[in-house]
């Protein structure tokens, strides 16, 4: 399981990085989203993987820490998801406005060679 997820994280990150290095802003926005998936999964996996152990406490049974996964990376990733969404939205708007003002969707605001 760990190996599959690790490879998945790697592919997401690699694809995202490739796109971030591309010249068109739409490619960058998709790339950033892919990278945030990868990073979120990466942070999440730092709490180790476990199935059927959601960190929702059953107050009727005595407290057993090993019966739950680590909630802290999850809390971190939850905020990261929301901030990532805000970042994507802001970037999208910057993209639209920059395109409207410069007439190009190249990340440098001008076509190469200009």
């Amino acid at each position: 399981m760990e190996l599959i997820l690790a490879i998945g994280i790697g592919v997401l990150a690699g694809s995202g990085v490739w796109l971030i290095l591309r010249p068109r802003s739409f490619q960058v926005i998709i790339g950033l989203s892919l990278v945030s998936y990868a990073v979120n999964l990466f942070i999440f996996s730092m709490g180790r993987l476990g199935t059927g152990l959601p960190p929702v406490i059953d107050p009727n049974n005595p407290m057993d820490v090993s019966a739950y996964t680590d909630p802290l990376p999850q809390a971190l990733v939850l905020t990261a998801i929301v901030i990532g969404f805000a970042m994507t939205a802001l970037f999208l708007v910057v993209l639209i406005v920059s395109r409207g003002m410069t007439g190009t969707d190249h990340v440098d605001g001008r076509e190469p060679g200009q």
Binding site: E2, A6, A13, L72
Partner: peptide, 28 residues
């Protein structure tokens, strides 16, 4: 290179067992 490094680090960390962390504090 970024992808492969991420894979290696993620795998390396995930296969390690987790020492006692703050998780216990929050859970309890």
């Amino acid at each position: 290179a970024v992808g492969i490094s991420m894979t290696l680090i993620a795998y390396f960390v995930m296969t390690r067992s987790l020492a006692d962390t703050m998780a216990t504090y929050f859970l309890e």
